[in-house]
Amino acid sequence: MTFEDIHAIADDYVLGLLERSDELAVEAEMARNGDLARAVAAARDRFLPLDMTAMPVPVSSTLWQRIETRLQETPAGAGDTAGEINTRMDPDRPPQASPRAANDNAASRWRRAAFGGLAASLLMAAGLAFTLTRTVEPLVVAVLVDEAGAVQAVVEDFGSDRAVVRLLDDLKVPADRTMQVWTLPSREMGPVSLGLLDQARSTRLAPPALPRPQDAQLYEITLEPAGGSPTGRPTGPILAKGFAKLPR
């Protein structure tokens, strides 16, 4: 179908007057055509008062239970594409070391939160990456979020021993502690330190030579003793984490 009169199409779509195939075409087009998406949103809100005239009806007492059951069957973060992403940074660390990870629900909440944050923030991250480097593109960008899903930092990994961390929120660091940035190039290799962060300052890091960063590679910032982790692996609480995306 053609998208010449987007307002007429938006109305037909909202009224359910399109054939299923055209409906799918509209949905696909909406994803890349902001004008059409806005026209559909406007049409929805235009007709919404008619829905508001519907008198609420009593629903079955089991309806919410049915929804909850279905939600439990739905894999956490149904939009997940990478199956590996909930891999903990340090497989050797006992789960008790981090109360967050001790609870599967918390883990899936986090995972979901990380995805929400990522989705909302990727555009911004891409913009940052662009202004920061101008000529050189990072190979991957990771938006790091805290457990509540709030964006804390962006890591841009340029490969060839260069990465930049931009802090986007005031992370609280006690005087005897330091922030350390990690990535997980592969399970076999385990977590590798990219470097230490100055107190709440965006920093250019000089990580060791590592395999080329991949899509969905894990990055995180932990709180470590001053001078960095004594073991060479993350030992402190996770302040923020996120998964790399390849800039498009």
Binding site: A41, A42, R44, D45, L48, D51, R70, T74, F115
Partner: peptide
């Protein structure tokens, strides 16, 4: 009710796609 049940699964899994510049939250849910 079956429709509403399935719709709530969708609301949960797609909530991250909602953005205020795409109309009201109510319009999106409806």
């Amino acid at each position: 009710e079956e429709v509403v049940q399935e719709a709530f699964i969708n609301i949960w899994t797609k909530a991250h796609q909602y953005s205020p510049d795409r109309g009201s939250a109510r319009g999106w849910i409806h």
